[in-house]
Design a protein around this nucleic acid. Structure first.
Lengths: 329, 329
DNA sequence: GTGAAAGCGCTAACAG
DNA sequence: CTGTTAGCGCTTTCAC
């Protein structure tokens, strides 16, 4: 059984196609009785307008493409959910495209999305490093989320990593710690450097010397365990970790040598990745990047761009500190 | 600058619209020279056919909807990636819809997808329990992945949890363990019961008594720590855990009481969730549900359904055991 | 070989 | 108030 078209509805209601259209869209001047008759027929036939036809006519599709390089991993998922949220269920639909970090795939996706006449594009990443901008035809607005275009053009929305580092340091200072160390991921990651910078700035502002230098390494538990071992000699009373995974590794080592958390050493992680942070012993205080908000904001800029009011430059979404037992609640 | 249409291409090449269409699609009989001229014009103008118009004409859109109740979490993401894979980049595009487990949202999404004339629907979940079937109009094939419809209609693709439990038990038996315990999630989860059943069946087949009863609890590290404590009195030499998180909790407790892994107690987890399994001390042997494969298979059935050859009933994708240090691999 | 015309489903302008 | 018409961009007969 074919889906009902407006022609069927018109026939069933005994009116012309044009009248049916007006009745269904509340346009023009019609007798109330006619409207009702058409509505009833539509209801009866389970009519829903063919979005494709509407889009063809309107010249826009009420869809956007969401491209990620991240295999829709831990970082782009929340961004995506926030974006979906902001685009409004049923209003604008989202084409999901995962490039697997392959530039060729990305190009194919961009072409396909252009052919589908998407109204705009969100490009999400897992690293905030500048990347090659996507090349879309003219007239398709693009917003970057959790990544940014190398040319500096095109609006981008990023978490405020530096602010997150500051938040962590201020919290540890506020609970009275003065020998605060920092263990984090690879130095080549911009977000690692930014977090370290925010952390250092907050200590400096408080007139507190950092406990040892920033230890760059990997984003793994193993590195956390190892770095914590190296660091014990410095006798820290708090450690700010660049990720929850690192924090868990640190906790393992502290526990193994009999240091109590948070009594002897307070711990703050980063990412607020629920299964990691909550499962830890004890549960981790952690900095949350509010990635859903990043996605929402990015989608908002995209909508603005679609309505002809494009945003520019890099926008930053503040982080949020979630306090749990690892820093004494 | 407007995007080029086939009309522009035709004009630039000095042919009619119909001829341009034929040239671009390799249809009909045309002089080679004409084809080339049209192709050149298209190239020149950066022409790409408007998919919307093609879809309108063809009566199908070359899109599918992917609905998940899971907030695109840990389970539906891989399913989605596998599906995307099978649908072929640029061939069929995927509309992403996250219902947040809200039936009303789901209904709105289904309507919207029908209005967009998707060729089919994949419904993904995070639990394999039967769920209320989605109500689509006639003619839209639906495949369930990692969930199944309560009415038993409609094809579904599930991981083989029972086989996974068997796999774990057989592995532990093969490395010589005979006092094998099982700690898992809530009994109300079908997958927990299935895994337990497969596990028990394998032990029975080998003539080995299980070490204590199956301990149902939660899918958390905390439960793993607690259950391991209860279980120590039974002196197990191996523990099969219903999730990697549980396994990590178990490992914590074993370490705390000085039991070595895997020498004293071998450990097998479930999910093969990389950050959890690899970060553990030692890294966990784990059963992988091959969710990408689940997604691929589901997409395959959907494609079959779209071509008028619908699949029926529940299909199962085998699990895979990934051996790491926690079972002496 | 190529062009003209019809039509996919819908909306908007214009007649009546 | 309602019906007719044109046209969004494309493909596909069917004439020439």
């Amino acid at each position: 059984m074919r889906r009902a078209t407006i022609r069927d509805v018109a026939a069933a209601a005994g009116v012309s196609i044009g009248t049916a259209s007006k009745a269904l869209n509340g346009q023009g001047k019609l007798r109330a009785e006619t409207r009702e008759r058409v509505a009833a027929a539509a209801q009866e036939l389970g009519f829903a307008p063919n979005t494709l036809a509407q889009a063809l006519l309107a010249g826009r599709s009420y869809t956007v493409g969401l491209i990620t390089t991240d295999s829709f991993g831990r970082f782009s998922i929340p961004v995506m959910l926030g974006a979906e949220d902001a685009l409004g269920i049923g209003q604008i639909s989202v084409f999901m495209c995962d490039t697997r970090d392959d530039p060729e795939r990305e190009e194919r996706y961009v072409e396909m999305l252009a052919a589908r006449r998407v109204d705009g594009l969100i490009v999400a990443g897992r690293r905030i490093e500048p990347r090659a901008p996507v090349r879309t035809g003219p007239g398709i607005p693009v917003v970057y989320a959790m990544t940014q275009p190398a040319n500096g053009h095109g609006p981008a929305v990023l978490p405020d990593d530096e602010g997150g580092g500051r938040l962590a340091a201020e919290h540890l200072l506020a609970i009275g710690r003065r020998r605060i160390a920092h263990i984090t991921g690879p130095e080549r990651f911009l977000n690692a450097r930014l977090r370290a910078r925010g952390f250092a700035a907050a200590l400096l502002a408080a007139g507190v010397e950092p406990c040892g230098h920033t230890r760059y390494g990997e984003w793994t538990e193993r590195w956390g365990r190892e770095a914590a071992g190296q660091l014990l000699a410095d006798r820290p009373d708090a450690i700010f970790c660049g990720s929850d995974q690192i924090a868990r590794g640190v906790a393992d080592t502290l526990r193994a040598v009999g240091r109590r958390i948070p009594e002897d050493v307070a711990l703050v992680g980063f990412d607020n990745w629920a299964p990691m942070a909550l499962g830890a012993l004890p549960p981790l205080t952690s900095v949350d990047m509010c990635l859903e908000e990043v996605g929402r904001v990015a989608a908002g800029y995209l909508l603005a761009g679609i309505s002809g009011d494009p945003a520019h430059g890099v926008h930053t979404v503040p982080c949020r500190l979630v306090v749990r037992e690892s820093s004494g609640g």
